[in-house]
Structures are given as structure tokens and as C-alpha cells.
Design a protein around this nucleic acid. Structure first.
Lengths: 334, 334
DNA sequence: TTGAAAGCGATACCAT
DNA sequence: ATGGTATCGCTTTCAA
């Protein structure tokens, strides 16, 4: 265990162990892998030699010959965002159940570095799962050959699978709930879309129409609690008459709750709030957040399941099965 | 790109590409790795063939020969716990800066599976970082040869490094702050220690003594918001006279805030609350949580830094440098 | 510019 | 029970 001073601790290989124990490589291999067909004393001698030398089998050499170990890459925009944390935890759990390894990459919302990351990721894993902000063409280019499963984003190329989030019914239920409670002027805090309005906003618009209320009170919000607070102020300025608000996600909603408190506006009395995502975090705030809730565990599990099918070649799930439906979960904020 | 039906999509190797392009393996290698010494047209032909066949270099074969790519294993008890999320995010960021890959393992607080996980982890990575509940002997046994950096836990064996969390001053500041505000009966919600009281409780005891107040009002709490709420009830039963409370961590403190609200006890008026960890989450609740705050980014960065030293053989940081000091950060809850 | 051959570090298959 | 040899897929070194 003592290193000869001045020497680089060069990697100890199976050959070193074999030599030291006075046996052949294969015997070493047998001893270390608990295969039978080896004498007890020999085995012990090998094990001792291995420990003595501090031998660690190379995962590369091993992976090269036994083509098992599956590793998937999980790409997340921001692990500090509780929603992604939940998805990541779910994916980790599902992968773990299969004995897979998961390399996590937090792209830190840096779209500029995303492609570079993606290329590296793709070269290191058997499949990629997650959220990407780049175009499909770019995705395709930088993940050549690797199965890719997108979460919460539609795909057009057949190269990809995606887990769709269907919040249409849930949002409808939310709006219906608000309307039933007497609300007529319901606002929405959408996310700060770079371009088009979000699909969640479309659900809002549709539900509003179905419930016979106006859907024009919309402002954009940065995806953070602070962003939610700021957006609420804007909304109350541009549309002082709103009595309820639906938000793009729970983080924004939580910011709204906080801001409402600061403004002295009681929730749900003077302002009803419904978020989207159903984060566990929503139960910690006051009042507990009502939300169009997603089953994040199912989200992660589905993604991993689809990866498994893609990897093994067994019939992949169809688009209709790759859906997680959101449903209204009442807290106390609406 | 069309697969002959009925055939297993057997792995495409560099040889297939070489054959298809009518060149040798090494030429293919050159083309793919952007080495010079290759004709433009040849290169293009190879690239085309590779794309055509859907060729992906084996990461094992590649890793075997160029011994670069470093992968570290991050072991976390529960990714859904915001504290560990923050640490994980920090470690990911630090690793990313070095171009390392991080395989994340969420042991889901299952001590029974931890050793098995550990053994697998150790065989798949170049170093291991994280939180472990097993003994050092077990750790040593199941991570033979791999550098290990423990976070927030002392080590005795020289085999390990650890990042120490020093909250002594911070806790002292917290207690001093409470005492200065007139509090004399300060309780503590420690974690539900399996055995000894936590080190954080020791800090509390010490600080209380220094400030001349009693440190006997302590009850254990499960590490969750609900646990914090329940513990507060217990505390108020056993020690109805407390006017302030320090908690083992922020999650517990947040549960306390919620429970206090339910009990109609105003914070900080009728009950001052100070947590530990300084989670970002603390800013989202009402009132914003005062906390003995840890620099989680530094925590992660230090761990990764030490791993780097261990891996390269450059002088590792000493125990005195592997410390993250906590400091009191006032929110509004105390 | 290209190719042949020699590893990288392990396991598997077949002898003995 | 043990060892020899081929092999996994790729890069590097050295010739041509």
C-alpha cells in the first residue's frame, strides 16, 4: 500500500495482479468476479494481491467486453428549479430500478452551451432524455444515432420520442372551478415566451371560451418567484379588475402569493390563485397552492420506459401512451 | 438508414465504416477526430459512410485507449430535499467547469441499499463524493481504491477526505441575536438522531451557555416540513414557555412556520424562528426565514476541487481548508 | 496521405 | 482448477 516515492502511481492492471499472485489473468478475473472453477487458496491469494496493489478493474475494458452497463444522459435546464428536480428524481428512480446509471447535466439555462454539452453527452451515454431548447435539426445533428426522448415538448422528426404534457382538461377544470366560485375576470401569467404564446396559454384561452369568460388578461412572467411577483403587479396595473389568476407554473404562482401578501390582497378572498405543475413545494406555502398538477414521477418513469424500449428494440410506446395528463388539485389558494 | 427487416441492429463498428468507405480503420479514426493528415475527399467519403451507417464510436473502446474522460459519482440521500439539490447543483456546476461527467445516485434514504449502490458506483467512476450513512469500515470496503470525499461528516480513516461544516459561529450569532432581542427561553428542534445528539445541537448548547441561557428545551424532529410542525407541537407542549426556536435545518423551520400559523402564533412576534442551511426556499415563505446559512455552492465546489487534487496527485487540501462556515442570515422570522 | 500492426485492459471460449 | 488465445472497438506509432 506504500507508494514508492517519486513514482507516478501508474495504473495497476489485471496483469500486475496476475504476476504478483503468480497466476494468469483469467484466474484473476475469475477470483474477482466470483466465478466458480477456482481453488479456494488460489482465490484468496489473488484477492490479497489485488488489495495489496490497490487494483481496480477498468470500467472501459470491462464495458468493452461485457456489453451490459447502460448509462443514460439526463439533460435539465436548471436543477434548482423544483419542477426539474422532481422530474430528475423520478427519472433517477426509474433508472435505478433498471440498474442503469444516469449522468446528469444541468445546462444552467445557457442555450449557447447546450449544443456543446449535447455533443459530449451523446458520446458518453446510450440514450439522452430531457429538456432542450435547441431546434430539432440541431438536436438531430448533435445526437446522431443516440435515442432521444424529449420531455414536455412536441417533436416532428421521427428520430425522437417525446412525453407530452396534456393540461387541457386540468386547466379547464381550473377555470370551471374559478367560474363556479363566481370569478369572471380571470387573468393569466404566461411565461415570458420568446416567441409564440405557450401551449398552456392556449389551454387557458380554450377553457375560458368554454366557460364563457374573457381570456384577454394575460401578461408574461419570468419563470421565478420574483418574476411572478413582478408580473402580478403588472397585471394588477393593466387589469385592476382581475379577481383570479392562473399561472404558467407553480414557481410563478408562489411569487404571486408572496406579492399578494405584500400588497395586502388576501388569497383566495381577494385574489384566487391557481398554479401549474403541482409541486410538493406548493404544500409549504400559505395558503397551500391550488394547482393543475402533473404526476412528475410518471413523467420520469415514462421517459425511462420509452428509452428502454428504444434501446432494446421492443415496440416503443405510441404518442397516445406517452402522455401525462394534468389534473386540478385544490390547495387553498383558490 | 433503412434497416433490413428481421435483423438485429447489430452495433456498427469502425470497421464497418472503413469497409463501406473503402479505407482503413485509422483513416476513419482520423476523419472522425478531425486530425490532419487526411485528404479532403477521403474525409468526406468517410464521414458520409459513417452517417449512412449510423455509426457511433464506442465510449468504452475510446476510453480504453485515451485515458481522459473523468466521471465522478455523486451520492445523495434525497434529491427532493432542497438542501441536497443545492449541493448537487453546485457539484454539477463545478464538475462541468472541469469537463467532468457526474453520475448521480439518489439513495432515497434507503440505508439498506446504500452499500450495494456504493459498490456499483465505485466500479463505474473515478471518484465518489457525497453523503453516506454507512460506517467508515463499510465505506472503505465498498469503495476500495476510489478516492472518496465526504460532505458534512467527519472522517477518521486517512482513506477519506471530508468537507466540514462549521456552524459554531453562526449558531452563536443566532442565539446572540435572539438573546439581544430579549429571548431567554429558546428551544431547539434537533433532528431525530438515531444515536447521539447532532453536532448542531452541540453548537446550540455551547452558544446558549455562552449567552447565559438554558439549552434544555430540545425535541427531535423528522427532517421534513411535517416533521417540523409535529415537533413544534411537542415542544410547545413540553415547554410552553419558549419564545424562540432554532431548528436543525430549514425544512424543519419551514414546517414550524406553517404550524405556528395554524396555531395562531405569530412569527416572529410570538415565536421567533431560525433555521439552518440558508436554503433559497427560505425566501419564498412568509415571513422569509432567518437562517444560519451555508454556502452550498462552496460546499460543492470544494468537494469537487478536492477530488481533482486526489485524482491528479497534487497536494490535497488540508482539513483546515476543507471547511464551509455558516453565518447568520436574517430573514424576518427572527 | 494512407495503411499495417501493436496495444489499451478486461472477459470468454476452449484446451489442458 | 488453470492457462492460452481470440476478441471487444478504438487510437497510436511507425512504415510506406
Amino acid at each position: 500500500m506504500v507508494m514508492s516515492s517519486g513514482t507516478e502511481p501508474r495504473k495497476v492492471t489485471i496483469n500486475d495482479v496476475a504476476r504478483s499472485a503468480g497466476v494468469s489473468r483469467q484466474t484473476v478475473s475469475r477470483a474477482l468476479n466470483d466465478k466458480g472453477e477456482i481453488g479456494g487458496s488460489t482465490k484468496q491469494r489473488v484477492l490479497d494481491a489485488a488489495r495489496e496493489l490497490g487494483y481496480r478493474p477498468s470500467r472501459f475494458a470491462r464495458g468493452l467486453v461485457r456489453q451490459d452497463t447502460t448509462t443514460i444522459g439526463l439533460v435539465i435546464p436548471d436543477l434548482l428549479n423544483p419542477f426539474f428536480t422532481e422530474v430528475a428524481a423520478a427519472a433517477l428512480e426509474a433508472a435505478r430500478a433498471r440498474g442503469w446509471h444516469v449522468v446528469v447535466y444541468d445546462t444552467a439555462d445557457r442555450a449557447d452551451e447546450e449544443l456543446g454539452t449535447l455533443e459530449v453527452v451523446a458520446s458518453q451515454v446510450d440514450a439522452v432524455v430531457g429538456y432542450f431548447s435547441c431546434s430539432e435539426d440541431e438536436l438531430e445533428l448533435f445526437t446522431r444515432g443516440v435515442p432521444v426522448v424529449l420531455i414536455g415538448r412536441e417533436h416532428h422528426s421521427a428520430r425522437f420520442s417525446s412525453i407530452r404534457i396534456d393540461g387541457e382538461e386540468g386547466v379547464h377544470a381550473a377555470i370551471a372551478h374559478l367560474v363556479a366560485a363566481g370569478h369572471r375576470r380571470v387573468g393569466m401569467l404566461d411565461h415570458d415566451g420568446r416567441a409564440e404564446p405557450s401551449i398552456r396559454r392556449e389551454w387557458f384561452t380554450k377553457a375560458a371560451a368554454a366557460c364563457g369568460i374573457d381570456a384577454g388578461r394575460v401578461v408574461g412572467a419570468d419563470q421565478s418567484a420574483d418574476g411572478g411577483g413582478a408580473a402580478l403587479r403588472t397585471l394588477l396595473t393593466t387589469h385592476p379588475d382581475v379577481t383570479a389568476v392562473l399561472t404558467f407554473n407553480d414557481i410563478i404562482a408562489i411569487g404571486v402569493l408572496r406579492e399578494a401578501r405584500r400588497l395586502g390582497r388576501s388569497v383566495p378572498g381577494e385574489l384566487a390563485v391557481i398554479g401549474f405543475d403541482g409541486l410538493q413545494l406548493g404544500a409549504l406555502v400559505e395558503p397551500p397552492l391550488s394547482s393543475v398538477a402533473l404526476d412528475t414521477r410518471k413523467l420520469g418513469a415514462l421517459a425511462i420506459d420509452q428509452v428502454a424500449r428504444l434501446l432494446t428494440g421492443t415496440d416503443p410506446l405510441g404518442a397516445d401512451e406517452l402522455v401525462v395528463r394534468a389534473e386540478l388539485r385544490l390547495g387553498g389558494s383558490a
